[in-house]
């Protein structure tokens, strides 16, 4: 078991980028997120976190907690550019990069002859020197422990978890620290009397499988510090979609159609950028009471233009009665093929 897996997680990424661009924001509570009435916090700088602000919090709530904070609208395109530069640093050491989001990635450096701890340190330093940003880095022999490690000494963390330390480190932890354990599984585990990771590790494997199925098997392995997931380069997307939550819930069909047209054009643009076409169009609606509805239609040929996508999505919308106001609308194209190959037609 070699320490070949590195997890890199940027500290308060969006806020840190803004602080880098605006030296006057340094040391100040910076909160990046949607500024509308219903906006939520995307990232809060560590200064802002001291006020109890955290991501996914309602913006209104954040403003209550810290009225004098610096509130900024996210600049996704810019963050994407920065993220590309970070990935370029990774690429100096390995091709096996699995980005999880703009600010987080797994690296597998087993093909690099150099010592992985040295590589990890160099990546952290180069990000700091070249990009003036701080990354927390974890090194271990699998994904679960590498991510856990990068989280341990955040911010500005650097942690190695070796096979010898793994048990000592994770066994006292709460079961919610296991990868894939959300609130629901946490509750299930605790109802079974399994509070700590050690309890899961020492529980009977067959008992866990009986109670939790496949997940039980996986959790038992994880609790032993074993995680078979490989670092994989993201493949072609299976679908491309876009959705939008309205500032105010909408009842009017024509207004929904306007949004739908815009979304269809965005999706078309993304399909064209990726050089793919699709033949299934899915319409998604979320009503004011959060009930979600989705309808899809598959046609014979592959499409990638906004009008055609809109036409199909609108036909799906027509069949829906709209008994309630709509909070969110989305359109997705799936069943994708590479546009490099196109089946020609006779007529």
């Amino acid at each position: 078991m070699e320490l070949n897996i590195i997890h890199v997680d940027m500290d308060a990424f969006y806020a840190a980028v803004e602080q880098r661009e605006h030296p006057e924001y340094r040391g100040q509570p910076v909160i990046v997120g949607g500024q509308s009435k219903r906006g939520v916090v995307s990232t809060a700088s560590y200064e802002a976190r001291e006020y109890g602000i955290h991501s996914a919090q309602a913006m209104a709530k954040a403003k209550q907690l810290c009225p004098d904070g610096i509130y900024l609208r996210p600049r996704h395109d810019y963050y994407k550019q920065v993220s590309k530069k970070i990935r370029a640093v990774f690429a100096r050491y390995t091709d096996l990069i699995e980005p999880l989001s703009l600010d987080e990635a797994y690296l597998d450096v087993s093909t690099n002859a150099e010592n992985s701890i040295k590589i990890a340190k160099r990546i952290k330093r180069q990000i700091k020197v070249e990009l003036d940003l701080v990354a927390s880095v974890g090194v271990s022999y699998n994904k679960f422990l590498a991510k856990l490690a990068s989280d341990l000494n955040k911010p500005d963390g650097f942690k190695i978890v070796s096979p010898f330390q793994a048990q000592e480190l994770i066994w006292p932890m709460d079961v919610s620290e296991l990868w894939g354990v959300g609130p629901k599984t946490e509750e299930e585990l605790k109802e079974l009397g399994l509070e700590r990771i050690a309890d899961v590790a020492q529980a009977d494997r067959l008992f866990l499988i009986r109670e939790l199925g496949k997940k039980g098997y996986r959790l038992h392995k994880l609790a032993q510090g074993q995680d078979p997931r490989e670092v994989s380069i993201p493949g072609d997307p299976k679908s491309i979609g876009n959705e939008t939550t309205f500032k105010q819930d909408i009842a009017k069909r024509s207004l929904l159609q306007e949004h739908l047209l815009q979304l269809s054009q965005k999706v078309a643009q993304r399909l064209q950028n990726k050089e793919v076409k699709g033949k299934t169009v899915t319409l998604k609606l979320k009503y004011e009471d959060f009930e979600v509805l989705s309808r899809s239609n598959t046609i014979q040929h592959y499409i990638d233009n906004g009008e055609e996508i809109y036409e199909l999505a609108d036909r799906l919308l027509e069949k829906i009665d709209l008994p309630k106001k709509v909070r969110l609308i989305g359109v997705t194209v799936s069943n994708l093929v590479d546009k490099k190959f196109e089946q020609l037609k006779l007529f």
């Binding site: 546009k339 490099k340 190959f341 196109e342 089946q343 020609l344 037609k345 006779l346």
Partner: peptide, 9 residues
């Protein structure tokens, strides 16, 4: 039997 080909870019 007439078959249309697949165009590859």
């Amino acid at each position: 039997y007439v078959i249309m080909p697949v165009r590859s870019a």
